[in-house]
Design a protein around this nucleic acid. Structure first.
Length: 598
RNA sequence: GGUCCGGUAGUUCAGUUGGUUAGAAUACGUGCCUGUCACGCACGGGGUCGCGAGUUCGAGUCUCGUCCGGACCGCCA
């Protein structure tokens, strides 16, 4: 037997027991006459204790051979510690060894295996198998496991069944770039890895599996971010004979369940706001509603006073930052620099300080702004009223084209939320964003694209606009947003062949293209397709949100870096001439050739 | 495709206006230490300053290029 107990379970109640432990050497503290060895495994740390005088010479010698991360087996008895350590669960006891066996040696690791490691990101990713030994990383993977388990348990109680769908599928031009896999048996042809199991789950609905789910890897060949990996996991679901409300209620229930059992948090009912209102009040389709600071539009009160910037603007919009009238010139300059960054893109920032009586040095308080030249105090007061601003508050105003200004104001609102500590990681505010537009016009290619995907159904009352005003058609589509993070989205699907055909027409597909790419789905719709709809939640993002992090990388055992590389196994990599030959492929252009050959 | 930040000891970093032999902490090694638990003390080894070119009497430091890593914009139905 290699062990009778783990390194995390022995307590006072185990005194005098003969035990065998196996694990890694965390640290040896050799004080000459006394030697302590911290032994670590997944479950915790147990202290091994030797006295030079009372122990066998060979045992002491063996103990002194141990280095960090050696794998050892210790046989001995549990005793009470002379001086206890209240900071760890096993801190009342220690094990006095009779035998120490080195199961394997270890090189000194390139960084310390400690909660607060000295290793940088790059090194930890290269030696990810060592990084995973660290408790903070292990805790994150344990959280991931727990969420996966509870998701499955909940969906099982709701009569969902998990069905696997294929990974080698067919490339389609819509949406994100596909990862592509060459076929040896069909040279010159390629599989694609799924961006989502979308069409398969819809086919399962046609087959009568009216509640399907899958925790499934999906793949998108697009550039990465802290919250985007080329392979990622979705909680993918589909239901038949449901309305939009049925889907929202089911997954609101699931989300609440996860918060309750995994985090011990009771979240309130999720508000539902339309895409249009989300854009109007937050400038974003994934608003963070942990704090207010809603947009207020000022065009009607600000125009016609000779301030050209506002007069010429399509949109004049502001937010009210509570208690920020005390901001100095320097603070305001910093905010101005923030909005002028190319990533935010505003031309400038107008402020109005609603000074309190104390700040103004008079009895009533006063209003001071960067546009005092154009607006009287009375007029500024009228603005303040629109914001429900109180003395002591600060109004921040941007103007310009509607889309760009909303975008910049969203960035500014989030920045102010951060500065005012209103984005508390222990607070969770989910919401549904509903009534998304069905289509999005793309200037570059001069055509409409499906905002969600081409299988999303238009709202029945808007279907008649498909011909003449496709941009105005709203979809039965919804997103789940939590704390400003898009956690998932879905829709009620089209289940009628004619409507699906029409949708492809609007998207600029010829009948032939639609038939060759999605014919299997439209054919299936002719054999009794039930009304259906579903949702997919980004599992990695959900786990990171639960863990209180913006980056999903730490919650993935073996993630890729921001260039899509796995620096541990060094992939992607070239393949041999023989492999290329078999696949009927030839590399004609490789900018990485030189780098890889070094 | 673009913008920004970084690369100096095993590791994390400092390094002044361009100027003598590039430092600290930690890790590692050796010795001492009877209750440690981030043990302590003493001593020691450890450097292609990412790489290449340029400017200069002289480059870790300035310029250009390049590679690597990180963050972001575009992109992500």
């Amino acid at each position: 037997m290699l062990r009778t107990h783990t390194c995390g379970e022995l307590r006072n109640t185990d005194l005098n027991k003969k035990v065998i432990l196996s694990g890694w050497v965390q640290r040896v503290r050799d004080k000459g006459a006394l030697i302590w060895i911290d032994m670590r495994d997944r479950y915790g740390i147990t202290q091994i204790f030797l006295e030079e005088e009372k122990s066998d010479d060979s045992l002491v010698k063996k103990a002194r051979e141990l280095g960090r991360e050696f794998v050892v087996q210790v046989e001995g008895s549990v005793i009470e510690r002379a001086s206890k350590n209240p900071n760890i669960p096993t801190g009342d006891i220690e094990v006095v060894p009779e035998k120490i066996k080195i199961l394997n040696t270890s090189k000194t690791p390139p960084f310390t295996i400690e909660d607060e490691t000295d290793g940088g990101e790059e090194l930890r990713m290269k030696y990810r198998y060592l990084d995973l030994r660290r408790k903070p990383v292990r805790t994150k993977l344990e959280l991931r496991h727990r969420l996966a388990l509870e998701t499955r348990k909940y969906l099982d109680t709701q009569k969902f069944i998990e069905i696997e769908t294929p990974v080698l599928i067919k490339s389609t031009p819509e949406g994100a770039r596909d990862f592509v896999v060459p076929s040896r048996m069909n040279q010159g042809q390629f599989y694609a890895l799924p961006q989502s199991p979308q069409t398969f789950k819809q086919l399962l609905m046609v087959s009568g599996y009216d509640r399907y789910y899958q925790l499934v890897k999906c793949f998108r060949d697009e550039d990465l971010r802290a919250d985007r990996q080329p392979e990622f996991t979705q909680i993918d679901c589909e239901m038949s004979f449901v309305t939009q409300d049925d889907v929202l209620e089911t997954f609101e229930g699931m989300t609440k369940h996860l918060f309750k059992v995994v985090k011990g948090v009771e979240v309130e009912d999720f508000p539902r706001i339309s895409y249009q209102d989300a854009m109007k009040y937050y400038g974003s389709d994934k608003p963070d509603i942990r704090f207010g600071m809603k947009f207020v539009e000022l065009k009607d009160v600000a125009r016609g006073k000779g301030f050209k910037v506002f007069d010429d603007a399509e949109l004049v919009v502001g937010i009210c930052a509570e208690g920020c009238a005390s901001y100095s010139r320097k603070d305001l300059d910093k905010l101005t620099d923030f909005v002028k960054r190319p990533q935010v893109g505003a031309k400038g920032l107008v402020y109005v300080k609603y000074l309190s009586a104390e700040q103004a040095g008079n009895e009533e308080g006063s209003l001071k702004s960067s546009v005092d030249k154009f607006y009287s105090e009375e007029e500024l007061k009228e603005w303040a009223a629109k914001f429900n601003a109180k003395p002591g508050d600060l109004l921040l105003i941007l103007a310009g084209g509607a889309d760009a200004t909303r975008f910049a104001m969203n960035e500014l609102r989030l920045e102010m939320g951060k500065r005012l500590h209103l984005r508390d990681r222990s607070v969770f505010k989910p919401l549904w964003v509903v009534d998304f537009p069905l289509l999005e016009w793309d200037e570059e290619t001069q055509r409409y694209y499906a905002m969600h995907h081409p299988f999303t159904s238009p709202k029945p009352e808007d279907v008649h606009k498909l011909e003449n005003d496709p941009g105005a058609v709203r979809a039965n589509a919804y997103d789940l947003v939590i704390n400003g993070v898009e956690i998932g989205g879905g829709s009620i699907r089209i289940h009628n062949k004619e409507l699906q055909k029409k949708m492809f027409q609007v998207l600029g597909f010829t009948d032939q293209e639609a038939q060759s790419q999605f014919g299997f789905l439209m054919n299936a719709f002719e054999y009794g397709a039930p009304p259906h709809g579903g949702i997919a939640l980004g599992f990695d993002r959900l786990v990171a949100l639960f863990g209180g992090s913006d980056s999903i990388r730490d919650y993935i055992a073996f993630p890729k870096n921001n260039a899509g590389r796995d620096v541990m196994i060094d992939s992607p990599s070239e393949i041999s001439e023989e492999q290329l030959e078999e696949l009927g492929l030839k590399v004609v252009n490789s900018k990485n050739q030189a780098a890889n050959n070094k």
